[in-house]
Amino acid sequence: MSKTISIDGQSVPFEEGQTIMDAALAAGVYIPHLCHNPEFTPHGSCKLCTVKVNGRNVASCTMPAVEGQEVLNDTEELNADRLALTQMLFVEGNHLCPACEKSGNCQLQAVAYYLGMMSPHYNHFYPQREVDASHPDVILDRNRCIYCELCVRASRDADGKCVFGMSGRGIGSSLVVNSASGRLGDTNLAVTDKAVQVCPTGAILIKGKGFTVPIGRRIFDHYTIKQIQTGGGPHE
């Protein structure tokens, strides 16, 4: 007999070694997440996936599923926390969606839509961040980076290249590029690399493709991120 946890009262089976997030995704239960991508080792940094397990808040993408856990997920309180985290991500970077090629296909924006974010609420930092257009096929716009490290993980674990890394701590963090000049154009990054495909935001974009699908006809214009990430709609 398979082991189960309960998520919002629903019984969800899991296998030994799976996290709460793994079990939820396999069962088609949506737990909002940004830094998690099932193809890569969990990172546990954005905290959007926070759930309440037996009364304590934990990151579901890193928390192993254990027989009999009572998990609260889709509650007003947790969604309010998630909304606040999302709003902080918006004001900590420079997110001008109308000028962003990723708009409509962006997971940060989609999570904001899902949580009903009507404004970023907090005062904007308007940080000074660098754009790196030196690569012939790929552009890196740090204004939109949320430091999820998916590109770091993908470049290291899938591409075997280590093109990206993080430097600094806290609000002083920045995404750095592994070349003597620090420029993307001086790395061996290829447009086909996994690192180029995984960015959930418009921080890493492939050049010359921006508006092949017009605004208004993109994934999250018509489907919620919940539908997409639990298999209810087309995949990116």
Partner: peptide, 14 residues
């Protein structure tokens, strides 16, 4: 967008 996060005019903020 402009009333809510500065919008395109705020592209000049940096």
């Amino acid at each position: 967008a402009c009333a809510i996060n500065g919008g395109l005019p705020s592209l000049r903020n940096n």
